[in-house]
């Protein structure tokens, strides 16, 4: 429990810091980016898939799902919020299994959410 509380506090700190404009967000973003590269980019990044597939599976799945209305690459989305990111990380979707807390803890999840929603204009205004 104590761990969960610490993580929540830290997550809150990162979220607040990120919305406080400028530097702190930059500090938080690289951790989120590093986590994205480590955990997500192998499915949701750029690059080719197995023979016959022009894209990685997560990128292709979102390309087909949104039919061009939203970017296929998660890192280029402007509509994501930390809550959406957290939902998909903890619940999974389709063939993507959820991530456990020993893989991505709550503080890391917040950092990931912050980075993936860095281009969301609504959050900047919030």
């Amino acid at each position: 429990m104590r761990h969960a509380l610490c993580a929540a506090a830290l997550a809150g700190f990162i979220a607040c810091a990120a919305t406080a404009a400028g530097k702190p967000a930059d500090q938080a973003a690289p951790l989120g980016k590093r986590l994205f590269d480590y955990h997500c980019a192998s499915c949701h990044g750029t690059g080719i898939g197995n023979p016959g597939a022009a894209m990685k599976p997560g990128t292709d799945a979102l390309r087909v799902k949104y039919g061009g209305e939203l970017p296929a690459l998660l890192s280029e989305r402007t509509d994501l919020t930390p809550e959406t990111v957290a939902y998909f990380v903890r619940n999974g979707v389709s063939v993507m299994a959820p991530y456990r807390k020993t893989e991505i803890d709550d503080a890391q999840l917040a950092a990931l959410g912050t980075w993936l929603s860095r281009n969301n204009p609504d959050l900047k205004r919030r």
Binding site: C43, G49, N50, K56, P57, G58, V64, K65, V95
Partner: peptide, 10 residues
Amino acid sequence: MNIFAIGARS
């Protein structure tokens, strides 16, 4: 993780 293309949306 490219194998997940076999089950993922496409």
